[in-house]
Nucleic acid binder design. Structure first.
Lengths: 213, 213
DNA sequence: ACCTGAACACCGTTCAAGT
DNA sequence: ACCTGAACACCGTTCAAGT
């Protein structure tokens, strides 16, 4: 895939004087402004530099290339989410395992849905072009198929079968994609193979109405 | 985000003569060859055209822009995966709900891991730059935190606590990302909020060793 | 009906020159 | 120590001209 070594993605240098710290700050806010005003497709070094009131060359003093700037901003946001989770974890310490699991899920959802519009636009860059639409369609299709299958199970007693089918598709699709995307090690792939079917079974069994018999 | 309307992502015209069908085929295989040989970063219209033995202008007769070509190839692969799942569903029809869930998870994993290297490179384009590394780090960090938390639950009895923590992080991270990425409707987001904590609880409870008590 | 390729606009990146 | 901006290489896209 020819990725640049990760060292090249890091900022080129840290600011040594107040003037330069202000420049870096201006570049960052300019990036977000351009992103929100013009979208990812129009986020160019020239536009960011103009908005920040610096020359293009200045940007290249701090970041070796455009990707490094964007990567640095995303990484910062990822760390914010991670810290949010650490706080949540502290509050869950010592509670029962099931409650911990529930709490972590809720915390992650809260963290991600509260992310600023700007950073969601940054992630959107990752989707770049309309893969989202294609994936959405497949997800919809799978939900229908899964729901139909669940309906025909002899022990089927679901309060909201469509939601269970949807959740099943999202759990499967999301976790597989995440492991493959993060260049998952062989060990992690093996874990996924072992645990994902278990998790799906447990979820579906739990979603059955308790009065089943 | 300024995406082009999706109609623009579709092929511009269908081939009407045998000569032109062959041209289209050549463009497709050339795209894959360039992708494998040079990586996403070097996948340019000029390189694809040269490899396909046609001029650049010819490519623009079939696709209104480069993205349309790539999108069309990815969509085709998505449909292959979807069809694979339909087959698997047929084999699972009438079985018990828990078994169906397990079977679907396994089928999806099989479909995704058997995708050709070329298409994984295409998806990789979606990740474009090294977001994967950053996400991988956060995932690792979360796994550690989750595992620690599970260890301190009063009812903790896990055969492989680290795997459960990893799976939990992947289930949560993957499903949230998928719903947000596919521009999830409000309804789907509500479903996720309701079902994800349930699913996580069910998985963790099921992962406890049965002899617990 | 299909193909060509020079031409154009734009973009990321560099570097010699400035303060 | 930091900034500038003209210059360069490259890329996506178009269109008048061909068969």
């Amino acid at each position: 895939m020819n990725r640049p070594p990760s060292a090249l993605l890091k900022p080129r240098k840290a600011p040594q004087q107040a003037r330069s710290a202000a420049t870096l700050e201006a570049i960052h806010t300019a990036t977000i402004q351009v992103l929100l005003a013009q979208g990812v497709g129009r986020l160019t070094t020239a536009r960011v530099a103009e908005r920040a009131g610096v020359s293009i060359g200045t940007m290249y003093q701090y970041y070796p290339h455009k990707q490094a700037l964007l990567f640095s901003m995303i990484e910062q946001q990822l760390q914010t989410v991670a810290n949010f989770m650490l706080d949540a974890a502290e509050r869950l310490r010592g509670q029962e395992a099931g409650t911990v699991a529930e709490g972590l899920a809720t915390a992650w959802l809260d963290a991600k849905t509260s992310e600023s519009e700007a950073f969601r636009a940054l992630y959107g860059m990752v989707a770049e072009f309309d893969l989202a639409e294609g994936m959405g369609k497949v997800l919809e299709q799978m939900t229908l198929v899964f729901s139909d299958l669940l309906a025909q199970a002899p022990d089927a007693r679901f309060a909201d079968r469509d939601s269970v089918a949807f959740m099943l598709a999202v759990l499967i699709g999301g976790s597989v994609r995440m492991v493959l995307d993060t260049a998952g090690s062989e060990e992690n792939l093996a874990r996924l193979r072992r645990e994902l079917p278990r998790a799906c079974r447990a979820y579906v069994m739990a979603a059955q109405q308790c009065s089943a018999g």
